Simulated assay, not measured.
Amino acid sequence: MVAPQFHHLAGRVWICPGDPDPEAVQAGVAVVVDKRGSVMIDAGQSPAHAREIQVALAAAGLPQPRWLVYTHHHWDHVWGACAWPGVEIVGHEAAVPLLRAEAARPWSHHYLDEQVRANPRLGPSFRARARAVDSWEDFAVLPPTRTFTDADELPVGVGLRHVGGRHAPDSTVVLVPDSGVMVLGDCFYPPPAHLRRPEDGLDLGLVRRLLHDDYHWYVSSHAEPMTAEQARSAVEDA
């Protein structure tokens, strides 16, 4: 696996792709740079991944964040949060009970093995978690400390909009209008693998409803960024 690296996308937005190996279940992250305080979008899949992201930030000459935004509550987007000191964690209100329930679980390699034996459909996700976390000693699942219902805007001109969807009830898109960038997270993806039915697919209709002339880049967590032209082409029949 290649060490994470940040690449400039547009305006104030830099992106750091995740591991392209689907078995790794590693989401990419983004940062919106601002001298008043930068915004990190998603936390990394584990404390180790978060620390690699921090090294990549420093290597690119980018500041450490003041805010950490969750696009949604799934583990590969939030499990690195406990390794981000001094940030305000921002997410949709629906994430709070979900992550409090996750925080109460007795996470360990033994527990992960037990869960997979009880429900083999959890195997891909839980085996990836076991590979991602080498030590549970200082691990914690952290709910957001700043929440919103429909929309929010951080003091640095970064907007948050709840869109929900089948992938996660708290799915949020992050809007950076001065850079022409919309970060989609996983909002249009099908449900997680252990909940997915054969007929479930990408919700391209959701993406079509999000398209706007002010945005030139659409960034999802597990794929290359799409230009506006690519996004419109992908959803034209949705």
Rank of each mutant, 00 (worst) to 15 (best):
R129T: 05
V163K: 05
E93C: 11
D76A: 10
H212D: 15
A81M: 00
L204N: 03
G164A: 04
I15V: 15
Y111N: 05
S38Y: 01
E137D: 15
E93F: 07
A43S: 04
V173R: 00
V207Q: 10
A48N: 14
G205H: 00
D34M: 11
D203M: 03
V163C: 08
A48Y: 04
F139K: 10
R232E: 13
I15T: 10
Q45C: 14
I89C: 00
D237A: 13
A140S: 11
R208E: 12
G44D: 04
P144S: 06
G164R: 02
A223M: 08
H222S: 13
D21R: 08
S46L: 05
C82K: 02
H162M: 07
A10S: 15
A132V: 01
C82Y: 06
L211K: 12
W136T: 09
Q230S: 13
R208W: 15
V158N: 00
R161T: 11
A151C: 04
H216L: 14
G165N: 08
P47K: 03
D42W: 11
Q115Y: 10
H162Y: 11
G205S: 01
H109F: 01
Q64A: 15
L62G: 01
G28N: 07
A132H: 00
R197K: 13
L202Q: 10
V33S: 03
I15G: 03
A83N: 02
P155S: 04
A60E: 06
S135C: 08
I15N: 04
P192R: 13
P63Y: 09
E137C: 14
P20H: 06
V87L: 01
E236S: 14
V2A: 13
G91Y: 09
A48T: 09
L9A: 05
H73V: 10
A151E: 12
D186T: 15
H49Q: 10
D237I: 09
A101Q: 09
L160S: 02
G86C: 02
P169Q: 14
P155E: 07
A48P: 09
A223L: 10
D213Q: 11
A58E: 12
D42G: 11
R166A: 13
V87K: 00
Y218C: 07
R197F: 04
V32I: 11
I89K: 00
A140Y: 07
G164H: 02
D213A: 14
S179L: 14
P143L: 01
A101I: 03
G180I: 07
A30M: 12
V173C: 03
P97M: 09
A128V: 00
P63S: 06
W14C: 01
P155N: 04
L204T: 02
P22K: 00
P17H: 15
A130Y: 02
R129H: 05
A103I: 07
F139L: 10
E236L: 06
Q5S: 13
E93I: 10
P190S: 12
P47G: 03
P20E: 06
R36T: 09
V141T: 01
A83L: 03
G165T: 11
V69M: 15
G80S: 04
V90T: 05
